[in-house]
Amino acid sequence: MAINIYSISIAFSILFLLIVVELVRKNKLQERYSLLWIFISIVFLVLSSTSSFLDIIAKSLDIKNPPSLLFLLGLIYLIVYSLNTTVVVSKQNERIIRLTQELSLLKQKMSEKK
């Protein structure tokens, strides 16, 4: 198999999928956050291993160079996923603030009882 954008994509998708599964298995990544990653690596694997399929979609979208479609998909996915990440961060930030407040109030109550 020649080394080109397709073979590199295939190799990367497989490796990436294995890494994600391994991270989940070791409890370093929660299942709920792994789903989107597993989904995108399978999509990439399918698209890059069946180049004729990619060609058809690229043609119908008037994309001259089919691998560009891979780049486009990757880019869109990254943007969406980082938005998702900041949503998660916002929620966690809110919870941390609440926890800090509750903790400090509890400490104040305890010291008053002494």
């Binding site: 603030i97 407040q101 903790l103 109030l105 400490k107 104040q108």
Partner: peptide
Amino acid sequence: AKVVDLPYNLGIGGAVQTGYIYAKE
């Protein structure tokens, strides 16, 4: 005064809200 010590700087909003939670409780 009664004092509530926040372990790190939450910012004015978080600090003031702590006071309101205290008032509610």
